[in-house]
């Protein structure tokens, strides 16, 4: 058995949803931050993929595309000691509070 991301030929696949959602600003930001870190040499595309593949399978299936990217970027930043989970928690809570 390979990982949850290894989808080629999965059984039970259904019709392809061809609808398109408008890319949201936070998705653009997730894309840009992830790639900017790669371009600075702070992480690689392969680490990013490995981090996404390490998500719990149920979570992998539940999250949207850029939500998986954010989870992976966060995981790698913490793993590399660039940021801590606690400071991200704290800052995210602060930002959410300000939006209310």
């Amino acid at each position: 058995m390979t990982g949850v991301h290894d989808l080629g030929g999965s059984s039970g696949a259904g019709p392809i949803d061809k609808s398109q959602h408008e890319t949201e600003d936070w998705e653009r930001l997730a894309d840009a931050v992830t790639v900017a870190l790669d371009k600075k040499g702070l992480k690689t595309t392969d680490e990013h993929r490995r981090a996404i593949e390490s998500l719990d399978p149920e979570r992998y299936k539940k999250l949207g595309y850029y939500e998986r990217w954010i989870a992976a970027t966060e995981l790698l930043l913490v793993e590399k000691g660039i940021l801590t989970r606690e400071e991200i928690d704290e800052k995210a809570a602060e930002l959410e509070e300000n939006w209310r």
Binding site: L63, G64, T73
Partner: peptide, 11 residues
């Protein structure tokens, strides 16, 4: 998730 990526960017 939107809040988390903004937090990550700010930090």
């Amino acid at each position: 998730h939107a809040a988390r990526i903004r937090a990550i960017e700010v930090l």
